[in-house]
Nucleic acid binder design. Structure first.
Length: 355
DNA sequence: TCTGGGGTCCTAGGACCC
DNA sequence: TCTGGGGTCCTAGGACCC
């Protein structure tokens, strides 16, 4: 076998549930649901994850906790604990970085690995062993020529397995599958594609790019066909990601109707976001406000600031001005404030003239 | 099954300018 | 004035992902 470059996708199995079961070994084998503050009677709270035993009762992530409770009154409900997942994730990523590979972190429970080897399966097995030895967590590993293939391959590898999906095996594996099996095509786009006669990956791969562009735009349309052909990004970026923006939002258990109440929450959210930005050392160039009315109508308004700033008072004032542009006649179930950061490579304005 | 929170990127349309 | 055509910036919304 010859040495060449590979992309591996490491996906931790049932990450949040697995971390919780390590802390609560007595719950192993029981239906466990993690979400919100762990109180299944709270409205407007959904499951972050559910163990296999809970899934057998029809419970899945995204399901309202009250529904989960109805489906399985005996389930154990736990609150989410982001710092614990953060810590576990950091240990996994540090373990991966000990190998002679390039590591691109992709969220809490995933990473892409760029490696040069003649035996990617052997490398995958060593990664799995190291992660398990260090953290007691299991992971699935997909092997591909690019990120798209490796990502789908790790899905086939679950749980705790290794699977290879390359350009050589792409067509036989994927051609008969529905288009939403592709990474980047969801339910909405799959339905639109089906309406146009593209039901399978093979049909999408054979589509006319111009026809797709006419329906999905000049970038997205041709991109969908590209995905159906098994292509994708093959570059592993090891430099830390620079966030484009940041946001905070809250769904209220009981609707807000009092304007003063709404304004107070906007103040809190804006201050929070401004503080986060300050801690991250980032300047803000745009502020957005999100309002979700009952039953579930979401609207956003935004405005660009005259100049980048880190000043909390400026951010808060901007958020209130934007809030003033909403019609607040209906009850409000969610408020959010988000900001865009200035990016390092695009300084906001003027260049200092030379002396 | 009354539907979280935090992100990223793309598109369409209007304003404005030459 | 019955109006052209391109370029850029800004905003609102949609889709997708973890």
């Amino acid at each position: 076998m010859s040495t060449r470059d590979w992309i591996l996708h490491v996906d931790l199995d049932q990450f949040i549930a697995a971390v919780e079961l390590l802390r609560h070994p007595e719950l192993r084998g029981k239906p466990v649901v993690v979400g919100g503050s762990g109180d299944p009677t709270q409205p407007r709270t959904v499951a972050a994850t559910a163990t296999y035993e809970a899934r057998e009762h029809g419970i899945h992530s995204g399901m309202p906790l009250r529904t989960a409770l109805r489906r399985c009154p005996d389930a154990v409900f736990l609150p989410t604990d982001p710092p614990a997942y953060e810590a576990a994730s950091a240990r996994v990523m540090a373990t991966l970085r000990e190998f002679p590979v390039r590591v691109e972190v992709w969220g809490w429970d995933e990473a892409f690995i760029g490696a040069t080897t003649d035996d990617p399966e052997a490398l995958a097995a060593r990664l799995q062993q190291a992660v398990h030895a260090r953290t007691r967590l299991t992971c699935s590993v997909g092997i591909g020529d690019n990120k798209h293939q490796a990502k789908l391959a790790s899905g086939y590898a679950k749980p705790a397995g290794i699977h290879r999906l390359t350009s050589d095996t792409w067509a036989q594996t994927m051609n008969a599958r529905p288009t939403d099996a592709l990474w980047g095509i969801g339910a909405r786009t799959a339905r639109k594609l089906a309406d146009l006669g593209y039901h399978t990956v093979a049909e999408l791969a054979a589509a006319d790019p111009a026809h797709l562009a006419a329906h999905f735009g000049p970038t997205n349309g041709p991109w969908y066909r590209y995905l159906a052909l098994g292509k994708g990004e093959a570059e592993v970026v090891t430099t830390p990601w620079i966030a484009r923006g940041h946001s905070r939002e809250t769904t209220f258990q009981h609707d807000l109707t009092d304007p003063a109440d709404i304004a107070r929450h906007i103040t809190d959210l804006a201050r929070h976001v401004a503080q986060d930005a300050a801690e991250a050392g980032r300047e803000i160039i745009r502020v957005s406000v999100k309002v979700r009315f009952t039953p579930f109508l979401t609207r956003t308004r935004q405005s660009k600031l005259p100049a980048p700033t880190t000043d909390p008072a400026t951010i808060t004032r901007a958020a209130h001005a934007i809030l003033g542009r909403f019609d607040l006649n209906r009850p409000v179930r969610l408020l959010g404030v988000s900001v865009d950061y200035t990016m390092p490579d695009q300084p906001a304005e003027e260049v200092t003239p030379p002396d």
